[in-house]
Design a protein around this nucleic acid. Structure first.
Lengths: 236, 236
DNA sequence: CGAAATCTTGATACGGTTCAACAAAGGTGG
DNA sequence: CCACCTTTGTTGAACCGTATCAAGATTTCG
């Protein structure tokens, strides 16, 4: 678990540090420490004191809530650029665990308070970020409350589709979707069981809407078919 | 539809205006207009341009998202003190409709921008508010993705229980729960059908966990039983 | 290479939906 | 203020999509 100073936040362009100008960047660097964690590391334990705040600079973190009997709902995946750990309460109401190898910038709570008051641009950026998270949460509530298993899988694949890279490998057909998480995680995110996730992906593969035997990388052959599916236009 | 200037925001103690000091209050008053709407009025149409931002000062507003075929998910109820309409996009990704008679303070977008930059306390308050909304959204995702119908109803009743008023009417047994919305709204909020909501409430009534024949006012007789139910401790 | 973890597929069960009929509440005009 | 009509809520019976239980296949990793 390497620990080093984040003198210049490496992913400034896509991270929250983006909001801060050059003079401020130095202060930010002193306020945060960069940490690297292996897969399946607990970053936040549900109910523990809310002492830190993270900005993901590499990898994917899953956020979740659990019931006493072990049922779990993953409320989101925080990819590069996203932050996590903001809360009003003294304790976290959710847990966070790394999916793959993850690098973060960590701010301790007093540091965060200082940053918020001293750097208005930082606070504004945070407000924008969290407003976007709320919109995503609302979309997910629609999915969990009203969509069928097929529609959920289709929505999930679309949401996780990489934006078509400019120097795309046009030799390979289909849009790439990266799925670093396991079937269990997908199921717990979509409010399904692993069996239903597996069956539904198999069905889409059979129908030539997706391809790829690799479990953590799928290719979408018919984006528009998926879009129809995701919004309930076309179930069969 | 009455329209008047909100010179001194009447519910300052519990509203977002709370964040603003006396000097600033006057400016806020000039930036907003107070409006009253009858039940079932559309405040925000899904997909329409995001021109305004509201603070609820009386009544309850429902927020929702819909699918093309009409399936609907209510993502939250905004009661007194809550705001709605904040978004990063140029259009709203959700709809909003009054449940009962509703009074709001409305800010137009440019006014909001000004307030945010000029009054840091206002911006901070907004960040706190929306952080709380995100936590609620996560709790609701757990409900929608992983709880049974019984657990959903129990959770809903608990969440809507009035805080026991200091001058409580101790002559009447049981904690009051106000349900201004219809069964359809409750169903669309909990990801169930109206029939299941009705059946489940009847079952809880039969089991003497709740009472009250009035559809919009229920009394909880056994709070701790409900709490067990809501977290999946005790299903029968 | 071998063991453990992860994923897939099949058979059966069940919670909640759907369809249907009726009951109760609310609102309106005479 | 009541009779009528419309809206909202309740209850029952049958059905269905997804969960559960079970077995086998594949992948991962030491």
């Amino acid at each position: 678990m390497e620990l080093q100073r984040c003198t210049v936040c490496g992913i400034r362009g896509q991270s929250i540090c983006n909001a801060i100008n050059d003079k401020e960047l130095e202060i930010l660097a002193q306020a945060s420490s960069r940490l690297t964690f292996p897969p399946a590391t607990t970053l936040i334990e549900e109910g523990s004191p809310a002492i830190a705040f993270f900005n993901v600079t590499k990898g994917t973190v899953k956020l979740f809530k659990s019931l006493p009997d072990g049922r779990r709902q993953i409320t989101g995946f925080a990819d590069v650029g996203h932050f996590l750990g903001l809360t009003n309460a003294r304790t976290y109401s959710f847990g966070a665990e790394t999916v793959d190898t993850v690098q973060v910038c960590r701010f301790l709570r007093p540091q965060l308070e200082t940053l918020l008051t001293d750097y208005p641009l930082f606070e504004r950026r945070l407000l924008t970020e969290i407003t976007g998270e709320l919109a995503e949460a609302q979309e997910q509530m629609l999915l969990l409350g009203r969509k069928t298993a097929r529609e959920r899988i289709a929505s999930f694949l679309l949401a996780r589709m990489m934006p078509p890279s400019p120097h795309a490998d046009s030799a390979v057909e289909g849009q790439m979707v990266s799925l670093p998480m396991t079937r269990v995680d997908i199921a717990d995110y979509l409010g399904l069981t692993i069996e239903t996730v597996s069956r539904t992906l198999s069905a889409l593969r059979r129908e030539k809407i997706i391809t790829g035997t690799d479990n953590h990388g799928i290719r979408v052959l018919a984006v528009s078919r998926l879009e129809d599916l995701a919004s309930g236009q076309d179930n069969r």
